[in-house]
Amino acid sequence: MSADMKTRAPRGGMLVDGLAQVGDCGLFLLNMLGAIPRSLRHLREISRQIWFVGAMSLVIIMISGLFVGMVLALQLYYTLSIFGGTAALGTVVALSLYRELGPVITALLFAGRAGTAMTAEIGLMRATDQLAAMEMMAVDPIAFVATPRFLAGVIAMPLLANVFSLLGLLGAHLVGVTWLGVDNGTFWSNMTSNVDVWKDIVNGTWKALAFGVVVSLIAVFQGYTAPPTSEGVAYATTRTVVFASIVVLALDFVMTAFLM
């Protein structure tokens, strides 16, 4: 067991336990941030993790983005046609994707795909004494295992969210222009004159970055503190998805309220 992180015994009382977990998680975040300078010595490990996390999630993100964009175009075309405003299809789709759906759905998919993998991997490393072995070889597992994965998640999330939104836009174009017959020029020009690139794309990217921080933090923390048994790792993996999803949705509301 690492000197600075111990799995706490349950103290009874869900609220108390929950708050204690949040506190532990915060301390863990400080530990990881403090380890960033040392972790920069393991650049190879960081880039390996970015590749791993990004490549792992890329396909599912692209496919989901495409379909979400297509559905969005269908639904919004119907709604807009009631008001005779189908020319605004491109704008509405782009705004929904970049400001809301891109970051949120990417974060949820990311938690399910990359987050669970991080938790399970770190949990198993603990269970098989690999983390203890690193400590014995004078390599800090926070700097070598936790921080690189955390940073990889934080870096990959905004990129993935933008890929998602871009693919969504292509999907919407496919349905709106190719299938439903919205004019191609109108689709793009109406959109580019209404989407304030900096405000909307940058705000969406901030959101994605924040989601990247919380999802990666939860995933790495759950793995690092999982009881070293197969049951412990299994539960930790489930908790990653549940906690990450709830926190992402709640944080989305808060950030939207402030960023609008």
Partner: peptide
């Protein structure tokens, strides 16, 4: 300066 052989090997998988 210390080598440690773990009871269960603990190789990095």
């Amino acid at each position: 300066r210390i080598g440690y052989l773990f009871q269960n090997s603990a190789l990095l998988t």
